[in-house]
Computed example of a mutant assay.
Amino acid sequence: MKKKIFSVVLAAAMVASFATAAVAGETEVTTEAGATEVSPADLGIPEGGDVNGDGKIVVGYISKNLTDPFHAAINDYADKTMKEWKESGLVDDVTGVLDGETDPNKQIDRAQDCISKSCDYVIFLPAEAEASDPALQQMTDAGIKVIEVNSQTTSCAEKAIAYCGSDDVQAGEMLANWVLKNCPDGGKYIHCTGILGNSAQIQRGEGIENIMKDHPEFEKVGEPDTQWDGNLASNATLDALNQYGDDLKAVICDNDAMSSASQKIANDNGRSDLVCIGVDGIDVALQMVKEGTMKATVLQDGVGQVTAGFDIVEKCIKGESFDPNPVIPFVLVTSDNVDQYYSGAAETES
Rank of each mutant, 00 (worst) to 15 (best):
D103K: 15
K159R: 14
T153L: 02
D167M: 10
Q138P: 04
G96E: 08
Q137S: 14
G89W: 07
T102L: 10
V122N: 03
G96M: 11
I147Y: 05
W85I: 02
D113L: 14
Q137G: 12
V169D: 10
Q137I: 13
P126L: 04
F124H: 02
I144S: 01
A142I: 06
N150V: 12
T95L: 09
A111E: 08
D92L: 09
Q138I: 08
V149M: 01
V149P: 00
K86Q: 02
D167K: 11
V149I: 06
S132M: 11
V91W: 00
T153E: 00
I108V: 14
I108T: 03
K117C: 01
K145I: 07
Q152C: 09
G100N: 07
G89R: 08
D133F: 12
D120C: 01
A157D: 12
V94Q: 06
S118F: 14
V94C: 10
A129C: 10
W85T: 01
S132Q: 14
N150G: 11
D109V: 15
W85K: 01
A135R: 03
G100S: 11
I115M: 12
Y121C: 06
S155H: 06
I123T: 12
K86Y: 10
G143D: 07
L136E: 02
D120A: 00
K117P: 05
A127G: 15
P134Y: 13
K159M: 08
G165L: 13
D133A: 09
E148Y: 08
T95P: 01
E148G: 09
V94F: 11
D168N: 05
L98S: 01
T95Q: 04
D167P: 06
V94P: 00
A160S: 12
D109W: 15
M139S: 10
I115V: 14
G89T: 11
I108N: 01
A131T: 07
A135G: 05
C119P: 03
A135H: 05
A135N: 06
N105W: 12
L125N: 09
A162N: 09
C164E: 07
A131R: 13
L125H: 04
K117N: 08
E130N: 15
A160W: 02
V122A: 09
L98R: 08
T154R: 01
T140F: 06
L98P: 02
S166N: 05
V169G: 02
M139C: 09
D113S: 15
E101D: 12
T153S: 03
G89C: 11
D141E: 12
Q137T: 13
G96K: 10
T140L: 07
E158H: 09
A127P: 12
N150R: 13
K117T: 00
N105M: 13
N105E: 15
C114A: 00
C156I: 07
E128S: 14
E130M: 15
G143R: 01
A131W: 04
L98E: 02
D92E: 04
S151G: 12
L125T: 04
A162I: 02
D92Y: 06
D109R: 15
E87V: 03
P134R: 04
N105S: 15
K145T: 07
S118L: 15
P134S: 06
D103V: 15
D120T: 00
K86T: 03
E148I: 09
C119V: 06
A160H: 05
A160G: 10
I123Q: 08
A142P: 00
A160D: 02
P134N: 00
S116A: 15
C114D: 00
Q152K: 15
R110W: 11
